[in-house]
Simulated scan of single mutants.
Amino acid sequence: MEALTIFARNCILAVLSGCMLLASPVAAEEAADVATGTRLAELLRAARSVLSNYQTLINDPAVADKHLDGERFTAEAIALYGKRTGSQLISNDLAERDRKLLQAQVDAMREVIDEHQDDINRPGIAFKGFVPAVFARLMNEKFAAKVGNEALVRVTAPEVLVRNRKSLPDAWEAKVIEEVFPDPQRPKDDSYTEVTEVNGRPAFRMLLPEYYTDSCLICHGAPKGEIDVTGYPKEGGKAGDLGGAISIVLFQ
């Protein structure tokens, strides 16, 4: 298991550009899974960032039509993905599986945005509750409805930080969060991978840690216990603290 983790760390920067040379079919399959998982996670992160950047507009009670429909949103998310990774999202160079899964993510985010137009454009109300965490959960649920027999994506967190029970970590995720990520000898940003079983099926699993940034602390920072804008007590977190993880499942 640790060997696969080291392998993932060594190839994480190369997988998006497809520039690795591999020594065996097993290594090639592992690298392909790491690449796929990384792409799915990065597209989810890009989509969340776009929604985060629009929070001020979405929550402006004086503006009705925000002109933020699914088409505009997905175009900006894809552009941000390209800017961050240096790679085109869906190209002929990708395997058929990757093209299918990434397109499912794009379709999922577009549908979520289009289905929430009434909330986004509701005048006279400031905070709409349509925050990145809610958006990500809805996007991942739609993704599962489309291709859940092939792949799953979800955002989880240490159990004490979970606000929605749907996001509670399963046993595998909890073990990685509690035993692997805190290891001081482990590079902080490394993902963790393992071939195991999910729902009785062989699966490649990948968990990517996420740490609080300054923007997260508006809801998750100090003072601990103070009620934030969403109605939850703040966790008292600091920038750089582990705040969550993106969990990827690729069925084999």
Rank of each mutant, 00 (worst) to 15 (best):
V134C: 10
M139C: 12
L168A: 08
T36C: 15
D65Q: 15
E111G: 03
N59S: 13
Y211V: 00
I218R: 01
M109R: 07
A31D: 05
V112H: 08
F143L: 09
S52G: 11
N140R: 01
K100R: 09
P187N: 07
L43S: 06
I248G: 05
A79I: 03
F181L: 05
I218S: 03
P158L: 10
G225Q: 05
G148K: 08
I90S: 04
P187L: 09
D241P: 02
V50D: 02
H220T: 04
K166P: 00
T230H: 07
F127E: 12
A62W: 09
A126C: 09
E235H: 12
A144T: 09
L44Q: 14
C216D: 00
F7V: 10
A222P: 01
N92R: 12
T56R: 14
L21S: 08
C219H: 02
S167N: 15
L44T: 12
S91G: 13
E141C: 00
G148L: 10
L152H: 11
S17K: 13
N164W: 09
P25T: 14
T85V: 03
Q55L: 14
K234Q: 04
R205L: 06
L43Y: 13
T230I: 06
G244I: 15
P158D: 08
F204I: 01
P182K: 00
D228Y: 01
V26E: 15
L152V: 10
G124N: 13
V195R: 14
T74A: 06
A46H: 01
F73N: 00
S49Y: 01
A222W: 00
T156E: 10
V112G: 07
K128H: 10
V249L: 10
F143E: 03
T5E: 11
N10W: 09
E210L: 13
L250E: 01
V155Q: 15
E96C: 03
K142A: 01
A144K: 09
G243W: 06
G37R: 13
T156P: 12
A222Y: 01
L102I: 00
A46S: 13
N149Q: 14
L57V: 15
K188M: 10
E96K: 08
P182I: 00
L250R: 14
